Simulated scan of single mutants.
Amino acid sequence: MKLLHTTLGPMRADELGMILPHEHVFVDLRTPDKPGYAEADPADVVRLMAPQIEALKARGVTAIVECSTGGVGLRVDIDLAVSKATGFPIVVPTGNYREPWIPHWVREASEAELAERFYRDLAVGVGDTGVKAAWIKISAGDDGITPLEEAILRAAARAAGRTGAVIGSHTIKGRVVMDQLDIIEAEGYRADRFISIHSQAETDFGLNLAVAERGAWIEYDHVGREPDDEVAALILRALDAGKAKQMLISHDLGWYDPAQPAGGTPRPYTHLSDVTLPLLRTRGVDEEVIRQLTVINPFEAFAR
């Protein structure tokens, strides 16, 4: 049976509904060597972010995927605190971001050591939180994969191969995604267990299709951040190309930022429910496809 591992434990598909596959509760975009990096009192994060979660619950959203990974402030203890305070499942990753957001221990670790760390986070739990990571979040440079980023990717593929976890990557260029898929397959893992995060940033739609033809998920996570007509047009274009079962849509919004006074001002996770889905309906997208995009696909992508 497929299960989605969350802060509230493993969950079946029939226990969940709409899932947002790319959001953030807590992010620190400073590099890990900066003073105060990723430091915050969980209670302060709860105060700021719980109202955002409650707004989601009111719209029928049943879970979100936390996309803050190692190097950009992964704090599973904070995700757990927010989750418990709201009674809302959050799906957390293991992994690490790209250069220069790579902490010293990752730079010093071997591929085997990284793979074992990622595997433990997936199979046992992240740190002492008791929360199993559901997936592996990585990244790659805009102009190509550096040797260190490739080592992280190879380690991720090995850990994912032992668990069935999906690997998601913040990758801007489609040709770099294709290189990542080559590396994953060379490690014996599968392209269909890869999410091309920020697919909308690749302006050549043909490369979006090429990635999907390899079997990977394409993710359009700019809802509420770009003009609504442009977002809808891209989603419709992918639907017309037959990619309804390989597409994820989300906001890439939130969040508590420890670099800002009192965590800054979060941006709501509600635009998809309030604006984008109604817009898609007016443009002929039926409820079966809406459910595919917002309920079935996120579960299938992140469950294992």
Rank of each mutant, 00 (worst) to 15 (best):
R193M: 05
E287H: 10
H104A: 15
A212E: 05
W101S: 11
L20M: 12
A85W: 04
F302P: 00
T62Y: 00
K137N: 13
Q246V: 01
A112Y: 08
R214S: 03
I184K: 12
L234P: 03
N297E: 03
D142Q: 13
F26T: 10
W217Q: 02
G73N: 11
G95L: 02
L248N: 03
A186R: 15
G215S: 13
C67S: 13
I90A: 05
G73E: 06
A133N: 04
E213L: 06
H22T: 06
I152G: 08
I136A: 00
V231S: 07
I195S: 04
A63E: 03
A40L: 10
E219A: 13
R75E: 07
V92A: 00
Y256S: 06
D128F: 04
I218T: 15
L209A: 12
L280W: 02
E108A: 15
V176M: 08
L280E: 02
P266A: 14
A63G: 05
A55E: 12
S196F: 15
I235G: 01
L20Y: 11
E99W: 03
G168S: 14
E213H: 14
D14H: 01
E288C: 00
A40E: 02
T31L: 07
L114Q: 00
E202R: 07
P93L: 05
Y119C: 00
E187Y: 06
R59Q: 15
G164M: 00
L80F: 05
I197Y: 04
I184M: 09
V124F: 02
V92C: 03
G36M: 12
V126P: 02
D121S: 14
S139W: 05
L293E: 02
N96V: 07
L48I: 14
R158Y: 07
S68L: 06
W135V: 09
L16Q: 07
S250H: 00
I235M: 05
E108I: 10
I19N: 03
L8H: 04
R281H: 06
A85L: 04
I167W: 04
D33R: 04
W135H: 13
D221I: 01
I152H: 06
A210V: 03
T171V: 10
A55S: 13
L29S: 11
V177N: 09
K132Q: 15
N297T: 05
P278Y: 08
Q292L: 08
G17A: 11
V45H: 08
W135R: 02
A165Q: 10
M1K: 12
P35A: 10
A151S: 13
A58W: 09
L80H: 10
P93N: 10
A301G: 02
D179Y: 08
T265L: 04
L4W: 03
G9M: 11
P103C: 08
L181Q: 10
A216F: 01
E39S: 14
G70Y: 01
V275P: 01
E15D: 15
V72P: 00
E66F: 04
V61Q: 03
L29I: 06
T86S: 11
V27L: 13
R237L: 14
S199D: 05
I145R: 01
T146A: 00
F26Q: 10
A165M: 09
G36F: 12
K84H: 13
